[in-house]
């Protein structure tokens, strides 16, 4: 558990440092995740070290959203003014994204001859 946490935190730290050093708009943890996928591909044995800790962290993933979500109390003004427009934007865009993604996946799978 402790080696796994140290490795995960080290990749996050490296990602944060790289994001700040390069000024990329990509968040540090995302760079850390990309680097960790690359490291796992290069050293597959790392997977066994990390699997249990990663699963433990990800099983509690929804809990970690709560403190930021409670921040809604600080934005009640914005939500009152822009609430209906934002709600419409979220519904339209979620429907569009699911439909576009699924239709394109199925079409390309058919063309490349690997349909389900």
């Amino acid at each position: 558990m402790i080696p796994a946490l140290a490795i995960i935190l080290a990749f996050q730290l490296g990602g944060e440092a790289a994001a700040r050093a390069t000024g990329l708009p990509v968040p540090g943890p995302v760079l850390g995740m990309i680097a960790l996928v690359a490291a796992l591909t290069a050293f597959p044995r790392l997977g066994a070290t990390l699997a249990a800790a990663a699963q433990a962290i990800l099983s509690a993933l929804t809990l970690f959203f709560v403190p930021a979500g409670v921040g809604v109390v600080a934005h009640l003004g914005v939500l009152r003014d822009a609430g209906p427009a934002l709600a419409l934007a979220l519904v339209v865009s979620t429907v569009a994204a699911i439909a576009a993604g699924a239709l394109v996946f199925a079409a390309v799978a058919r063309i490349t001859g690997k349909g389900a």
Binding site: E16, G32, V37, G47, A53, L63
Partner: peptide
């Protein structure tokens, strides 16, 4: 302290992605 865990969680997404 709970919010902090979001960062490590994003990094940990690498494992199922790799699997």
């Amino acid at each position: 302290f709970v919010h902090f865990m979001l960062g490590p969680a994003v990094v940990a997404l690498a494992v199922p992605l790799w699997q």
